[in-house]
């Protein structure tokens, strides 16, 4: 029913320069590792990327950045990446910082057909500049717009040929909303399973939002390994 890709190059082939792409993940957790690598190889340029973070210097979206494929980044925290800082200071990269909860809701709204909404986050701060402020019950709120994208890339633990997806633990993060907000959503899944193996009650992303799937082996790099010593 959905396109099942057998190569990551094939999955990203249609993406053109100047596209807007949303990418799931929080830090390096839940990122579609191989789709990002294939985008780097595709040499597609002038991308607008919407993602909570921008990877680290040598992994995740940091790879796209290093290859100078991103013109504009919309995210909430980009502090783990030196190349990011350099490109912003040189004027090569435009950044739109959005509070994390606002970003999540802008993507959710975009996917749910809601053009804009009011939120308290950012009232009286630099991000309120140029935005409508309105009071409800004596409290001020900012008008924020929904976000959509030409392509959405998500990472799930399991998926089936109907496009249904199940995420694992905190690798869920932005993935479910991002899956809803792309005109074309491609899911990189750790395991492509038979529909019978997916309990309909446990599906996080219903298949209607997903146009293509591909199975991919993940490295799952850890940014801050924190362990407890054996007593």
């Amino acid at each position: 029913m959905k396109t099942i890709y057998t190569s990551f190059q094939e999955a990203v082939k249609r993406i053109e320069d100047y596209s807007t792409i949303m990418v799931g993940g929080f830090g390096l957790v839940g990122i579609p590792e191989n789709l990002i690598k294939a985008l780097v190889e595709s040499e597609v340029k002038h991308l607008t990327v919407i993602s909570n973070n921008c990877g680290v210097d040598d992994w995740g979206l940091g790879l796209l950045l290093k290859n100078k494929q991103i013109d504009k980044m919309i995210g909430s925290y980009v502090g783990e990446n030196k190349e990011f800082e350099r490109q912003v200071l040189e004027g090569e990269l435009e950044v739109e910082l959005t509070p994390q909860g606002t970003l999540a809701e802008r993507i959710r709204a975009g996917g749910a057909g809601i053009p804009a909404f009011y939120t308290p986050a950012g009232v009286g701060t630099p991000i309120a500049e140029g935005k409508e402020v309105r009071s409800f019950d004596g409290k001020e709120y900012l008008l924020q717009t929904g976000l959509t994208a030409d392509y959405s890339f998500v990472r799930a633990a399991k998926g089936d040929r109907y496009g249904n997806l199940i995420y694992n633990k905190t690798a869920r993060n932005f993935n479910p909303m991002i899956a809803t907000a792309g005109k074309v959503t491609i899911a990189e899944v750790e395991a492509l399973v038979e529909p019978e193996e997916m309990n309909p009650d446990h599906i996080h992303t219903p298949g209607i939002y997903v146009q293509g799937l591909i199975e991919g082996i993940q490295e799952k790099r850890i940014e801050r390994l924190t362990v407890r010593q054996e007593a």
Binding site: G75, S76, Y77, V78, G79, E85, V88, L89, V95, L97, P99, Q100, G101, T102, T119, P120, A121, G122, T125, I127
Partner: peptide
């Protein structure tokens, strides 16, 4: 100084 981003702080202070 380089702006790293507000992360979730602007939401959490209202939350």
């Amino acid at each position: 100084k380089m702006i790293k981003g507000m992360g979730g702080a602007m939401d959490i202070v209202h939350g």
